[in-house]
Amino acid sequence: MTLWYSLILVVILTLVGLFGSQVNGLQPLFGIVLPYIALVTFIIGIIMKVLKWAKSPVPFRIPTTCGQAKSLPWIKNDNLESPSNTISVIGRMILEILFFRSLFRNTRMEIKEGSKVVYASTKFLWMAGMAFHYTFLVILLRHFRFFVDPTPQFVIWIQNLDGFFQVGLPIFYLTDMVFLAAVSYLLLRRLADSKIRYISLAGDYFPLLLLLAIGTTGFLMRHFTKVDLIGVKELTVGLLSLQPVIPDGIGSLFFLHLFLVSCLLAYFPFSKLMHMAGVFLSPTRNLANNNRMKQHVNPWNYDVKLHPYEEYEDEFREVMRGAGLPLDRDPEEEKK
């Protein structure tokens, strides 16, 4: 059901983008106003969300330790899995953010031969995740040829490398293929694995479908229906140098592509996509495991009702004396 909600939503957005941009006079809306609104929403939205997170303190130091802690000097500390200082924490975070370390650990449980619980090594989610995120990054960087003028040299290097295998004209980019394949895998996985299908919400399908739509429109524009690249660049450079213009004769597919990207940007801060910022702020990963070494302060630490020793001794004085335990205050002694 949730899948259908998302699919219908993406279809509606596609239709809006496809036909809306063709209505006379609406092109400035789709080509200028909405992209600006989306970009501002994206930036401000993320900042607001992160600030909201930041308003809550981290009262306790609760890192998940995935390796030997620093203890006795001759016991080897696994400083990336159980970091004891800031540098090690940075190392752990780099592994986490750039290489998806935790996901790399993933296993798949199976019950075999009746009651044997076994764990298969499974890296497909990790591979698809890495493939998706990194190709997305490369595609974004490649788009700099539309964002800025003149095109920076590094973009040209990326293009050359990405189009290393000269297949098709314009050359098919490897990252386009990998991106579409990875997104499709992530989507199919949600549908094929009954557990994942069970936990999936509309908010899980929607971004995948939207990305698929964005990727597909981009791919179509490059290889099939084509748009006027010069016009496209004129528009995007105009947008990004704050002098927006709408050139004539750009294909409608481009406006659709731009509209879908705007939707993604605007949707970002209000969705699970915020994991992009959240991964930096997860207290189980970004804190050092030096709890017993260094004092950690809880800003809202308040007093609670205690049961002090005096009350305890008052209650148990007789039996304590009987058992020969030393007493702090012995009324009988005092009487004497």
């Binding site: 308003k55 303190p57 996901l103 449980m109 989610l125 557990k195 699970k272 915020m274 994991h275 189980t284």
Partner: peptide, 24 residues
């Protein structure tokens, strides 16, 4: 508690339901 625990706040917002935890 949302105001007191960043963990709670962040954990409420960022789960992508990838399912890696499911069979753990």
């Amino acid at each position: 508690r949302l105001e007191r625990f960043r963990t709670l706040r962040v954990f409420m917002d960022i789960c992508v339901r990838c399912g890696a935890c499911a069979d753990k």
